[in-house]
Design a protein around this nucleic acid. Structure first.
Lengths: 236, 236
DNA sequence: GTCCCGTTTTGCGCTATCGCAAACTATCGG
DNA sequence: CCGATAGTTTGCGATAGCGCAAAACGGGAC
């Protein structure tokens, strides 16, 4: 099995408080794999046989209803873990994970988790922290969906994406992976039509520049203003 | 300090894998307190000086926007922990906790957490599991808010409450603590007006019986049917 | 027993947003 | 270079649910 270079991952929060030797031992249990753009890493409902650490690329986690509607649960960025079904004692994945870009991941068998946690308790503590943060973010999302209009929610979503995966250009911030109107709709609880209308509007105001699966925030601050604007303050 | 009886809490999932002696040691660091109905246990934004385990009663965790709108994040039932800001590395509480009934809690100083986790790693693992489950539930809630109509969301919310805190009566299931239309609205992302209308409708169909801060599901199965009904299938 | 206050009910107009339909357009494979 | 395909734009009703307002109600405090 190809050995994984510890220096690539040693600095990750996940491994905070883990000695280099221990890290080496942890990595020895992992294998790495590459997933091409648009390929599925695991499917909702499938046996949770592995958990993952994203090294490179971007992964979209989406949850589907019995009737086929989807929401995007989150975008995974390099350095984050995903597919931790075992952390909640679930035997099956609660969502589907798709590589939105060519992606490289480390893969551990789920069965290794209890042993790893026992030998390296800080893994559990670090994971708890990560999951707690995500819970936090979930609550914020619920709060937004409950209290804000679609335009503000979209603004917040874009700002979050830009912060997480924004590439600074001289003329703005570009979201660093392919993302469609539909994806944004599924992040904000609306339809691709409404997202399209909103982005068209913003584009004509010079706030964004966008195209097929591509969005550049030309005026991030202007979008912050939109995001914070309370429902009434009228336009134009 | 009054000693807490270990037998009351030994069976909780939180303490799974913890020996009786260890449990004793953990409990020695806690104090207990009683909060009367409608009193605040902690406020959003306050210094997270303690974390809590609910022994008796019910606690509502709510998150407030800068503009004053609220959502109910969850209802805490006996045996669950809350106020675990430290788990996500936060120095302040992200929500407000209110006792909705006379409630009894165990209280640990936040500062004790790192030491407890180090000495008793299963605490971290168990907490991770609990937090993971809540993350899961959050995602389900987001999915519902994104894809279902208000009536279905209210149906789901009531069923969840009934499952969590339902008291079986011969003529139905009663939700075991005071809950207003407003509370349900804040759980489902709607207004108290709409909730009131929906409950009135259900009441006239014999599905529920309700009054001031009180709801009895007379026909739980009928409500399940409502909850699962897809958007189109019309009424009457 | 009576008063007061928080909760609930209900009516009515309004509008943000959906849903459907159709045209348009980049991008990629060949 | 060109056609096919997936993604995007836009128009036009339809409507679920909000927001406001006001009345009715129930329960506890004294």
């Amino acid at each position: 099995m190809a050995k994984v270079d510890t220096s690539l991952v040693a600095h990750l929060p996940l491994f905070a408080g883990v000695t280099p030797e221990a890290l080496d031992e942890i990595l020895r249990e992992a294998r790495s794999a590459r997933y091409p753009k648009n390929s599925a890493i695991f499917e909702q409902g499938a046996d949770a046989q592995s958990f993952f650490l994203l090294l490179h690329g971007h992964v979209r986690a989406a949850k589907t209803t019995p009737t086929g509607e989807q929401i995007v649960v989150r975008y995974v960025t390099p350095g984050e873990t995903f597919g931790l079904a075992m952390a909640i004692g679930a035997a099956r994945y609660p969502a589907t994970a798709i590589a939105v870009d060519d992606s490289v991941v480390l893969i551990w068998p789920t069965s290794a988790w209890p042993r790893l946690v026992e030998r390296f308790p800080s893994l559990a503590a670090n994971t708890l922290q990560a999951v707690g943060t995500r819970l936090q973010e979930s609550h914020t999302r619920i709060l937004e969906m409950s209290t804000q209009q679609v335009e503000q929610r979209v603004a917040h979503a874009l700002l979050r994406l830009a912060k997480q995966s924004g590439k600074k250009l001289d003329h703005g911030i570009e979201i660093d992976f392919p993302i469609s109107r539909q994806d944004i709709a599924q992040m904000t609880g609306t339809t691709l039509h409404t997202v399209s209308r909103i982005l068209s509007g913003w584009e004509s105001q010079g706030l964004v520049e966008s195209g097929r699966q591509r969005i550049i925030l030309r005026d991030p601050h202007g979008i912050v203003v939109l995001a914070e604007r309370s429902a009434d303050s009228g336009a134009v």
